[in-house]
């Protein structure tokens, strides 16, 4: 038990020490000032937010339909599709990015927002589908049956019995896809056009050239968002568990 605690403590320190040491430097008013004055950086943030929003909406819609379709397929095909779904989780990102690059060149696509959104939908689709699949498997079907038995028309069943149950999954799926898209550097790097500079690409180029204090402040801000995201999802999860 003592050994276990020692390893656990060591792991937490290992994961947190570099992060805390670095982010601490972002806690300065000068950093905030320079961040707000850096128009390139802010424009990248805006581009990334729009890209993440668009691709997360599409990925969630596609993932929801797929999660509804999977249980209706034969066991053998479902197994094959579920294996294929995991490919983007495992395959090194650079392989995906380069495969997309070659594919888009070959089909003569115009590199720009279109290819970026297609690529981002491509990798977030897996996560959106997996989240919605878990959500649909935990649906309380008796509510739907009850609504039907009471004579509710199709629309009303969807609106009042199905949708409220799907909502947590839809939110989780959108949030996951959004976060992944916002964070992606490598795939975007290969499939973007000349005019697109997403936030990770901007940060990457700043890391290579000069590191100003505003990078620290921005990192602190982004890390704050992820802390909030994790805490909120933990709370939702807890609420779900105590309800069931």
């Amino acid at each position: 038990m003592r050994l276990l605690s020692a390893v656990f403590t060591g792991v937490i320190i290992f994961l947190w020490l570099p992060l805390v040491l670095t982010l601490r430097k972002g806690l300065s008013l000068e950093g905030v000032d320079r961040l707000l004055a850096n128009h390139d950086l802010l424009s990248s943030l805006q581009q990334s937010l729009l890209l993440a929003g668009a691709s997360a909406v599409i990925a969630t819609a596609m993932g929801t339909l797929t999660a509804l379709a999977l249980p209706r397929l034969s066991k053998a095909w479902r197994g094959r599709f579920e294996t294929l779904l995991l490919v983007p989780l495992l395959l090194p990102e650079i392989a995906l990015g380069l495969a997309l690059l070659v594919w888009f060149v070959k089909i003569g696509a115009n590199f720009g927002w279109g290819t970026l959104i297609a690529g981002h939908v491509g990798f977030s689709f897996t996560y959106a589908t997996l989240v919605m699949k878990a959500n649909i498997e935990s649906l309380d079907r008796s509510l739907i049956d009850a609504a039907r038995d009471l004579g509710a028309p199709n629309r009303a069943v969807f609106r009042h019995a199905l949708l409220p149950q799907l909502l947590p999954g839809l939110i989780a799926s959108f949030a996951t896809a959004f976060a992944l898209s916002l964070d992606d550097f490598l795939i975007s790097f290969f499939i973007k056009g000349m005019d697109q500079v997403t936030l990770p690409i901007k940060i990457f180029s700043m890391l290579r050239l000069s590191v100003g204090v505003e990078i620290y402040t921005l990192s602190l801000f982004l890390c704050g968002i992820s802390i909030l995201g994790v805490l909120v999802s933990q709370l939702c999860f807890k609420k779900n568990r105590s309800r069931s």
Binding site: F185, P200, Q234
Partner: peptide, 23 residues
């Protein structure tokens, strides 16, 4: 404990690498 593991994971990959390089 779970949050302490999940937060670094949810933090941008580039920021994590940036922190490691600083370290």
């Amino acid at each position: 404990a779970l949050s302490l593991i999940l937060i670094p994971l949810a933090t941008s990959f580039l920021i994590r690498i940036f922190a490691v390089m600083d370290f």
